[in-house]
Amino acid sequence: MSAPVDVKTLVIDGVNVSGSAGQTVLEVARENNISIPTLCHLDGLSEVGACRMCLVEVKNSPKLFPSCVLKVEEGMEVTTASDRLKHYRQTILELFFAERNHICSVCVANGHCELQSTAQSQGLTHVRLPYRNPKLDVDASHERFVLDHNRCILCTRCVRVCAEIEGAHVWDIMGRGIDSMLIADLHQPWGESSCTRCGKCVQVCPTGALSEKSKFGAEHPKHPEFLPYLNMMREGQ
């Protein structure tokens, strides 16, 4: 009996692991308790490969690959942690912190923020880059939720969960480059948009950009882990 053809064996950080064809390096790494930091990735949503936190090295390639979209291949040798990757991840985090006004101490997500915790896990203790301090709005027009652009890292989890899971596609990105901005519908106040008030975007938001009104810090844990179950139940139908 030959082995099933869709099983791929590879090496991640010196550990022999296996995955099925079509699985990503990130999936297989996490199945094997090898941690790779991510920000835009979320189980249950499509991948965009935008935050670049999950970049890994692949032997015999000068290029780095985002492990969230990199499919496993037979014989692949992946390195998820090196001095080079650590430096890149820290610098990318610095770019995030310097881009907008992330004042952790007074953020609704303090203690429940993935940007904050990733910075800690990656050993970032300060930001070398000058803070840009842009003047950004807070949209509190919604009866239940608040959008604070100061905290947004443009990961588009909200855009994807609204379009792919809720099916409403209220959120999208306006403008380009450093001026990119999350908008509801055609740049309307959130409270006047076609929002269905399901709150999924708030739950998946990694930072304090989307939050529930009158909740703060410890009262505001987020639960993005509902997504894979939701998808499982839907697929089961």
Partner: peptide
């Protein structure tokens, strides 16, 4: 820059 990925955007 389209603004999708952080290294290019910021």
């Amino acid at each position: 820059s389209c603004g999708k990925c952080i290294p290019c955007r910021a």
